[in-house]
Design a protein around this nucleic acid. Structure first.
Lengths: 247, 247
DNA sequence: ACCTGAACACCGTTCAAGT
DNA sequence: ACCTGAACACCGTTCAAGT
């Protein structure tokens, strides 16, 4: 039987539910809570079942598989990120899109890799996103010869940075690993790598590969802002460029 | 006992190895082969042990944990991606870096997410990468007020796109899922989403969210090239921009 | 030093059986 | 229709014991 069930146990025999609300939405919601707490790696269906005080097999009545459930979790987190067409030009709309994506994902940092791995392959509710990006790109002057490339770059720019910013650190022995990396970083030979050592104070724990805390503890706000501006400036140059290579 | 062991079984009693070559490197190499075949999701230490015809616990003499082993696998794949300082300006060096990273990772597509999730937090052999990027940025005119931001953008641009391009599709029922997505994509209402439908032929199976095969089957070459050019143009604009916001 | 062999505490998923 | 209860085929990791 499912362990724990500390006090209340309203019903423990098979049959249709009396007043239980084991809906699909509740399962997704509990799954998201678990992921927020323990991360994607340690997340398990059996924990979800325990939280709901049901058997693991119950989950399978409401969800097809673990992967399907995770897809629904990422859809839930993505809900509402796509800005309305509203006023403002395509630059404003894209800036808004990027910032809203960041805000949504920062509420559930552990879902970042899920989205990177699943939105890339899952259409769920994101038709609004696709159409919004296409419209913005057409407004920016995209043509048949560069629309696909520009579209792919927008999607990857939106998600790529944050996937990395929120990439999980080694879970086993967290502060031991942090101390080891910090020591190793601080003991780099100044003669062999002078520029690295000189700029270490600027980068330590605030730059990829050189950090021992991830983006949910040490956000990379200014870098994300730079990322957005770099992308928008580069995109405009790309779309205004003379014809030539397109395939 | 470990199953299979079809024909040869040179030694099956405990003790020091007679002539076995169960080195750390061989374990990492076999692990990479497994990942290439079955993907990160289905990869297991026990399979590696089976391939080497040893008990799972043997792995733990040569590696600290599964995560540590995976870190070594990604280091192996990353070996040799950092270009030498050589001739050419910082733009050439960075273009080379991006393209060599792409070439290396395309040989082992399933490792892409590993790198995205681990290089972001693991220093392994990548001091050459860090120093190379810093040097290139200084040559490009980066200063104390924007070096960190530019550095983070370079690293995320290098890995972000390919992490998405090679993101795994649902593994269970692959062609069933592909058919379902394709059908759903082709049945979008033209009245509700006119621009999407109009540009569908251009995007179908060649654009994020709208594809049913991932980057190892349908590469996004021209989009990656666009991504690199967009980033380089945007980066130059960012570095040449007047002082102002930097924190 | 390096491996066997067994055990521990988990997984996702399936399926008959209940009500 | 919706859940129990048990089972199947796995995992990563630990640890005593062998040589």
């Amino acid at each position: 039987m499912p362990p724990a069930a500390p006090a209340k146990a309203p019903r423990k025999t098979a049959g249709r539910p009396v007043n239980s609300t084991i809906t699909h939405e509740r399962i997704v919601s509990v799954a998201l809570e678990q992921i927020d707490r323990v991360g994607i790696h340690a997340f398990s269906l059996r924990d979800v079942a325990r939280s709901l005080d049901v058997y693991p097999s119950t989950i399978y009545w409401h969800a097809a598989s673990k992967d399907a459930l995770l897809a629904d979790v990422s859809s839930l987190v993505m809900a509402g990120v796509v800005p309305p067409r509203g006023e403002g030009d395509w630059r404003d709309w894209m800036r808004k899109l990027f910032n809203r994506y960041r805000k949504s994902i920062r509420k559930h940092p552990n879902v970042a890799q899920l989205i990177g791995a699943q939105l890339a392959s899952n259409a769920s509710l994101s038709i609004a996103l696709i159409e919004g990006v296409i419209d913005a790109l057409l407004e920016a002057g995209a043509t048949e010869t560069n629309l696909r490339e520009a579209y792919n770059c927008v999607i990857s720019a939106m998600m790529g940075f944050m996937t990395m910013e929120l990439a999980p650190l080694p879970t086993d022995d967290p502060e031991g690993w942090a101390a080891a990396l910090e020591a190793r970083v601080r003991s780099v030979d100044p003669l062999a790598h002078p520029t690295l050592v000189r700029h270490l104070p600027l980068l330590a724990n605030k730059a990829f590969i050189l950090r021992w805390q991830n983006g949910s503890e040490v956000p990379l706000n200014s870098s994300f802002d730079a990322h957005v501006e770099i992308f928008l400036a580069g995109l405009e140059a790309f779309l205004q460029r003379p014809v030539g290579s397109g395939a």
